[in-house]
Amino acid sequence: MIIILAGGKSTRMGQEKPVLKVASKQMLLWVYEEAGEVDDVLVALSRNTPKTRELCLREGIPFIETPGKGYVQDIQWLLREFGPFVSVSADIPFVKASDFWLIEKAFDGKTSLTGVLPLEKVPGDLNPVVYRGYAIVGLNAVAEEGERFFEFTNPLLSLNVNTPEELELAKRIANLIRAPR
């Protein structure tokens, strides 16, 4: 199962990120469509995201409401409710079905996988969260025991849209990707 995390407060953006549009499509839909090519998908909402709930209802996307007490608490709650799962942030519009497939293939259901990208693969315009020499991406596998890094190659996984500037960058990238050839 893939769970899209879409219940955060979006304090840096100032509005619900999952419903913001990138190339005329809400970010949640970009992620949902790719994830849906690989596995069953559920969107994790909270009281912080009423517009995202409306989008899910309108589009027929299955969702569950988490307690909304914070990222770690919601992940723990989801793990208790569903067991091991693949998690992805709703604000990574350029995640691909192949990225989901790769992490699912590597996931044994016992050891958590933290999605990372080698820093040399991160485009220069981005400022990702760096830990132990890797950029942390919002695509992970969640289990009860331990943790290890899982290295991706898709450089656009490093674009986690948290600010208006990152949203504008995502729009520019989307226009390049979707441009007629």
Rank of each mutant, 00 (worst) to 15 (best):
A23Q: 07
S24T: 03
S24R: 09
S24I: 02
K25F: 07
K25H: 08
Q26G: 12
M27Q: 13
L28N: 08
L29A: 06
W30T: 08
V31Y: 04
V31G: 02
Y32F: 15
E33Q: 15
E34W: 04
A35Y: 06
G36E: 00
G36D: 00
G36K: 13
E37Q: 15
E37S: 02
E37W: 00
V38R: 09
V38E: 14
V38F: 04
D39W: 02
D39T: 09
D40Y: 09
D40T: 14
V41G: 04
V41F: 03
V41W: 01
V43G: 00
V43L: 10
A44N: 05
L45P: 01
S46F: 04
S46K: 04
R47W: 10
N48I: 02
N48A: 07
T49Q: 08
T49E: 12
P50M: 07
T52I: 09
T52E: 13
E54C: 12
L55M: 14
L55N: 06
C56H: 01
C56V: 04
R58P: 04
R58L: 13
R58S: 13
G60S: 11
I61P: 11
I64K: 09
I64P: 03
E65I: 11
T66W: 05
P67M: 13
G68A: 13
K69I: 00
Y71D: 01
Y71F: 15
D74M: 07
D74W: 11
D74F: 10
Q76N: 14
Q76E: 15
